[in-house]
């Protein structure tokens, strides 16, 4: 019982990171049908930008306080969000009408650029996060759950709730959904299509960056390749939930996190990625619409 609860708790934290990254995948795919290969690298960028801010602002072990950490988190999200918008403007926007293959290859190029750019800036070694989080926690049914885990899941939930309200209550959210349906019609109706797409990239990038900073603090080390595998996992989560569906991405992330932790427990740590990738392939082959995705009718 205690092991089950522990697995669920650990999986929930990883799952929350997956959800935050998967949201960006799903939103960008939903609006312009692009698989943003570079999305995982925005998570990595978030971790590093947070790292630098914490180092510069002197967020050493205790003094910074919770407020300081939250400010760094928000700042990181804004900075990386702007970078995400910049990427869309420079690399993707000119190719919106180009063949799918071109834009996919562009995304791979962006990913290579971000990874190796970060390697040049921050170095190839693992960097230790300038933040010591306490390991205190509570015992629940024999499992140990730290306050940090609770805090991270709480912040993630808050971010997702905010996104949910924004998408469903604001005009921008409505515009996003409209563009997903018919871009040309939106142009004709006077919607600033590019502005809305840019905003989508901003939101997606900043959510990934938030996850990156939190992951940096949670795991304690960061590295320029940390975004690659987690990007794939987050994509798996998005597909699992149903790509294009925002609640689907949230649910998919949490489910994947828990399934993976359970898989690690059963098969051992070295097979963790195989579990996730096999799951991805199985969903894509057997039920490409995922749990909450809508059936896309192909042209013909």
């Amino acid at each position: 019982m205690d092991i089950l609860v522990q697995t669920l708790a650990d999986g929930l934290v990883i799952g929350a990171f997956y959800s935050l990254i998967a949201l960006g995948y799903t939103m960008v795919f939903g609006i312009i049908k692009l698989l943003n290969f570079a999305h995982g690298d925005l998570y990595m960028l978030g971790a590093f930008v947070g790292y630098t801010l914490l180092s510069v602002l002197g967020g050493d072990s205790s003094g910074g306080g919770l407020m300081g950490i939250l400010i760094v988190l928000l700042l990181t999200m804004v900075i990386v969000g702007v970078i995400g918008m910049g990427i869309e403007r420079v690399a993707y926007r000119p190719l919106l009408l180009a063949p799918r293959l071109s834009i996919l290859i562009t995304a791979i190029g962006v990913s290579l650029f971000l990874e190796n750019g970060s390697m040049i800036v921050w170095g190839a070694q693992y960097q230790v996060y300038p933040l010591q989080l306490s390991h205190d926690g509570i015992s629940l049914l024999g499992a140990k759950i730290t306050y940090v885990q609770i805090g991270l899941v709480f912040i993630s939930a808050l971010l997702m709730l905010g996104l949910h309200l924004f998408i469903n209550r604001s005009l921008y959210g409505k515009a996003m959904r409209a563009i997903a349906l018919d871009q040309t019609a939106c142009h004709l109706m006077g919607i600033h299509v590019h502005k809305v797409i840019g905003l989508t990239f901003f939101i997606g990038a900043s959510l990934a960056a938030g996850a990156g900073t939190m992951a940096g603090a949670y795991y304690g080390t960061v590295n320029f390749m940390m975004g690659f595998v987690i990007g794939l996992k987050a994509f798996t989560a998005a597909v699992l939930g149903g790509i294009g569906s925002i609640p689907g991405a949230m649910l998919g992330g949490l489910l994947l996190g828990m399934m993976e932790t359970a898989g690690t427990f059963i098969f051992g740590g070295s097979w963790k990625d195989v579990v996730a990738f096999s799951l991805l392939i199985m969903i894509l082959v057997l039920k490409p619409t995922g749990i909450m995705g809508e059936k896309v009718t192909e042209r013909m």
């Binding site: 071109s102 190029g109 962006v110 290579l112 750019g117 040049i120």
Partner: peptide, 20 residues
């Protein structure tokens, strides 16, 4: 050395933009 893949990444993007 370190810049190799960075240059490759940029080259891929530039290629798709200007000479797909």
């Amino acid at each position: 050395e370190d810049w190799r893949y960075l240059i490759f990444g940029a080259a891929l993007v530039a290629m798709m933009l200007f000479r797909p």
